[in-house]
Nucleic acid binder design. Sequence first.
RNA 1: GGAGAGUUGGCUGAGUGGUCGAAAGCGAUGGAUUGCUAAUCCAUUGAGGGGGUACUAACUCCCUCCGCGGGUUCGAAUCCCGCACUCUCCGCCA
Length: 426
Amino acid sequence: MLELKFIRANADAVAKAVAAKGEKADITAILALDEKRRAYLRDVEKWRSERNDVSRKIGEMKKHGEDAEALMVRMRDVGDRIKVHETKLKEIEEALNEHLLWVPNIPAPDVPPGADESDNVEVRRWGTPREFDFQPRPHWEIATDLGLVDFTRAARMAGAGFALFTGLGAKLERALISFMLDLHTTMHGYTEILPPYLANRECMLGTGQLPKLEEDMYNTRQDDFFLIPTAEVPVTNFYRGEILSAFDLPKYLTAYTACFRREAGSYGKDTRGLIRVHQFDKVEMVKFVEPETSYDELEKLVGNAEAVLQALGLSYRVLELCTGELSFAAAKCYDLEVWAPGAQRWFEVSSCSNFEAFQARRANIRYRGKDGKPRFVHTLNGSGLALPRTVIAIRETYQNADGSLSVPEALRGYLGGLETISAPAK
RNA sequence: GGAGAGUUGGCUGAGUGGUCGAAAGCGAUGGAUUGCUAAUCCAUUGAGGGGGUACUAACUCCCUCCGCGGGUUCGAAUCCCGCACUCUCCGCCA
């Protein structure tokens, strides 16, 4: 959410940002409603002021035993008029607010302009893609042969597009989750939390998934809860409505959660294996920081996510997203893409964004500055990491000629010292 | 699921129809005192919005907000109704 004052003063720039992001917020309508709102507000406030004055007078007259009937009759009239205009004012404000919720965040000035992924800018690469002296196989073959996943039975349980990890495949998920959380809590200064996987409507509005992405979310009809599409939702809402102290900032939180996405509109895309599934595991990092520091914090956040890939020995590249690829709420975003040598392509495993005050304004998360004035914090978040594609990269990178899989050293401690995953005996 | 109690400012906590935006305490900020620390004293200290002078600062007037939404009334933190959440007890249950 942007401030109405800001939109009023920078209408052109905001309209430009809306276009650059391919959004459809109607800035002209907002300005008109804003104008109308203030006109009604002036009237209502004038009458309310009168009512307050006269009511006070009535109170005093009654105390002195005087007859205030005439004034009371007059105020009854004023009261009716206020009520009518208040109703109208409320309608206008609701319409205005509805419009405002559709205004995206403005890209930071240094975000490269562009329409699609071809305009993203590669910032750096890490690691050398592994050379094979045999033909590397794709991850879905490896997983099936080693008995790590079972999509047939997953479909029986839930439906198409769900993963079911089995045996060491399941244990590998658990190992990765523990490894990532341990890394972030011991090396990067994050506090671990384990939040609810269901979130209410206010949370979804706060982080900006709603109203735009309602179709992509699972909703529990009876109670109007949403299955979280990312831990960002509950974790960012950790401080919703609170005023933090400047001395407590920055706050770093990390959480493992399952994530649920309907992936409406993406049918037929990346249907194979784990690339795109309705439920997946992810470790998320969320930061609450002072505005002055948020871009430094973003770089550090990317570094925290990169540390996971580096520890796992996986090659990756860092992309800076162009304006057209930025999500609704983000001002700036880096994607981390890992190299999968079997599939011969890059897979996004992390998205690290600075939302500046956009989410904080929606979720009303403030801090009290050293001058005592409350200000909105800046929020950031990044995956550290999403598991399915990380697992894909591990399988393809660490595969051996005999079909077995070496366990990355960083994970061995979490798998009872296991060094190799081999096909189960038939 | 049933019964009861509660929800007030950064925090604790008073307030049951008329200067209540709200006592008191804590905390915070500024100042005084002080060899340092501690203690003490004085002062300031809620948020959001609209208008005016000014035209980033400052000043000033007004409105709203005591969980949320309605209602009663000239007037509601205070009375009535609905909802949410928290706590206690009972039932059920992983």
